[in-house]
Design a protein around this nucleic acid. Structure first.
Length: 300
DNA sequence: AGCTCTTCCTGAAAGC
DNA sequence: TGCTTTCAGGAAGAGC
């Protein structure tokens, strides 16, 4: 599933082959994942792709009119794509056969076509005006590769939520998903259900470091391909071979040989090593610890 | 504030 | 064997 490293890999590929090209035609199959498909089909043709950037898990295709004049107020347009779970953005010769579940076709002026394929259609597609970009970006948190250690600690300290749920919250960090949350927590030796305010500054600093480390390594491996993910040229990533806990439940921890476990935290399956990432003490356990001889004390 | 549950969607895998 | 059920999950919204 595309998270920051996968989206970054797609963006780097698109940035090589798209800028300078003009979009000449737009066609859609199903449009239930598209905000205002008519506006996209109306406005994109005749625009030139100026750049392709990433905002968290969003791909941002920057468009400008073919006759852009630097002395006029900019009328740039941002074509924003989220790949959801199974989205793919690829550039292929327009004559290539169409793989199933391809719902967006963006013909270029060089005979190629940008295509959007998405089996489950959890992705999203929308247009953002230049004036609306700050608001759009403002709803997202900091880039995990840019946030300072101090800022990172500040956004986690004093929060009563679980580490896993904060890592997945796009309003705090933009781009971390289930795979990289689990992998970062393992490397920092922190249990996913730990309450953030109970985690020491030293441990938060470790988590800040491992989040960056994992994301950077994954980008170097061109992302993780679990089922559907491929880059803009259709190639799979290789970071799935380096996962230490994600989807390794039942297997031996690479550090201590304990069996990796899978539990649900924040509604997401979470993989961790019970020995390297000790569970937080529950209230119940804490009380038992204090009064080990108490008989059937009322629960809750 | 933060949790759980639900919705969206399809294919793979498990269950019978 | 073949059908039915369950599950996975990013994000958003409801309700507690």
């Amino acid at each position: 599933m595309p998270e920051l490293p996968e989206v970054e890999t797609v963006v780097r590929g698109l940035r090589i082959s798209l800028p300078g090209r003009e979009i000449v035609d737009v066609r859609f199959g199903k449009t239930d994942f598209v905000d205002d498909p008519a506006a996209i089909a109306e406005r994109l043709p005749g625009m030139r792709i100026a750049d392709v950037t990433r905002m968290g898990k969003f791909i941002c295709i920057v468009l400008e009119p073919m006759s852009a004049r630097s002395d006029l107020p900019s009328s740039r347009l941002y074509f924003v794509v989220h790949l959801g779970m199974t989205g793919r953005l690829t550039v292929v010769p327009a004559a290539d056969s169409v793989v199933p579940h391809t719902h967006g076709f963006f013909a270029l002026d060089d005979g190629r076509e940008l295509r959007y394929t998405d089996v489950r259609r959890f992705g999203r597609m929308l247009l953002v005006q230049e004036s609306g970009l700050p608001e759009f970006a403002g709803r997202l948190g900091k880039e995990p590769l840019e946030i300072s250690a101090e800022e990172f600690c500040r956004s986690f300290a004093q929060r009563r939520a679980r580490l896993k749920s904060l890592l997945l919250d796009q309003r705090i960090l933009r781009g971390v998903g289930n795979i990289y949350a689990d992998e970062s927590l393992f490397r920092a030796r922190l249990h996913p259900a730990r309450i953030a305010e109970n985690v020491s500054k030293k441990q938060l600093l470790a988590l800040h470091r491992t989040v960056r480390e994992v994301l950077e390594e994954a980008i170097r491996s061109r992302g993780s391909s679990i089922s559907d993910y491929v880059d803009s040229e259709g190639n799979r990533g290789t970071f799935q071979q380096r996962h230490r806990v994600y989807q390794r439940d039942g297997k031996a921890c690479l550090r201590c040989k304990s069996k990796i476990k899978r539990i649900i935290v924040a509604g997401r399956s979470s993989h961790y090593c019970p020995r390297c990432q000790p569970a937080p003490r529950t209230r119940h356990a804490a009380r038992k610890r204090l009064k080990p001889r108490m008989h059937s004390d009322s629960h809750r």
